[in-house]
Simulated assay, not measured.
Amino acid sequence: MRLPTMSGHFLLAPIPESSDYLLPKDVKLAVLGAGRVGKSAMIVRFLTKRFIGDYEPNTDKLYSRLVYVEGDQLSLQIQDTPGGIQAQDNLGQAVDFLSKCVQWAEGFLLVYSITDYDSYQAIRPLYQHIRKVHPDSKAPVIIVGNKGDLLHARQVQTHDGIQLANELGSLFLEISTSENYEDVCDVFRHLCKEVSKLHSPSGERRKTSVISRPRSPNVQDLKRRFKQALSPKVKAPSALG
């Protein structure tokens, strides 16, 4: 299914100097996929609005930033992952890192390149691994077909991405990180909103429960004191004055 067009403001927020503010919600995202599909470029473009080429750092990196999503302040953490996680060399270490990353994250972007059919085939096992680690979780997953501007080198058709997303029950968007910042922003914005929804209902119930329980005894105590204040025993001394 296609990723819906997003509305509302999505702003990168500076870290406040004062500690006198409400703690933002934590949102932990992981960007997974084969090597050279543009995972890191997507993250960097999203955070800086700058495209710096097919950016693939040699080490894993955790990006942290305060952001606003439609008025809600979020403490966003994005875990970048190394390319070549399907490679046979150091497979044990790669799988161990992948498992830890999947356990840590609450929302996932699965990225492939439309110019690399092998990267497309890597999406299904990645999705299955996420559901294996989170068997009872509704952790949101968005499938992203990147490098949509390289139509001359296309190996994966748009309908292939849509079909895969439908089979897995995920959302799908085909984008060009180098040409369209808004599409990149929409992907992260939507995933942030979906992760926030996972915690909001239960969090609101806990907050209401904690606040409402003490109110009844306090109200009864006030009523009792009010009646005592109107009783003759209490009024007599004041009349003597």
Rank of each mutant, 00 (worst) to 15 (best):
M1W: 09
P4I: 04
T5R: 15
M6T: 09
F10V: 12
L12Q: 10
L12I: 14
L12H: 15
D20H: 12
L22N: 05
L22W: 02
L23G: 01
K28I: 07
A30K: 04
V31E: 08
V31K: 11
L32F: 02
G33N: 05
A34E: 15
R36M: 02
V37F: 05
K39M: 10
K39Q: 10
S40L: 07
A41G: 14
A41C: 08
I43V: 12
V44N: 14
V44S: 15
R45M: 11
R45V: 04
F46M: 13
F46C: 05
L47R: 13
R50P: 00
D54L: 06
N58C: 00
K61G: 06
S64R: 13
R65F: 03
Y68N: 14
Y68K: 14
E70Q: 13
D72K: 15
D72I: 06
D72Y: 05
Q73D: 01
L76H: 03
G83M: 10
G84H: 00
G84V: 03
I85Y: 11
A87S: 11
A87L: 12
Q88K: 10
Q88S: 09
L91P: 01
Q93G: 12
Q93P: 00
A94S: 14
S99K: 13
V102Y: 05
Q103V: 00
W104K: 08
F108T: 06
L110T: 03
V111G: 13
V111C: 10
Y112Q: 01
Y112D: 05
D118E: 15
A122L: 07
I123Q: 11
I123A: 06
I123S: 06
I123E: 11
P125A: 01
P125H: 02
H129S: 11
R131T: 11
H134M: 04
H134A: 08
S137Q: 15
K138H: 13
I142Y: 08
I143Y: 13
V144K: 09
K147E: 02
G148H: 05
G148I: 00
L151F: 00
L151W: 03
A153S: 11
R154F: 05
R154I: 01
V156S: 11
V156Y: 07
Q157G: 04
T158E: 13
D160W: 07
Q163C: 11
A165Q: 04
A165C: 02
L168Q: 10
G169H: 01
F172R: 04
F172S: 03
Y181E: 03
Y181M: 06
E182H: 10
E182A: 08
D183E: 15
V184E: 03
V184K: 03
D186C: 09
V187G: 08
H190V: 02
H190M: 10
C192Y: 04
V195F: 09
S196E: 12
S196N: 14
K197H: 10
G203E: 15
E204D: 11
E204W: 06
R205I: 07
R205E: 08
K207T: 07
I211T: 14
S212Q: 11
R224K: 13
R224L: 09
R225D: 00
R225N: 10
F226T: 13
K227S: 10
S231F: 01
K233M: 12
K233Y: 06
V234C: 15
V234W: 14
P237H: 08
A239T: 03
A239Y: 04
G241M: 06
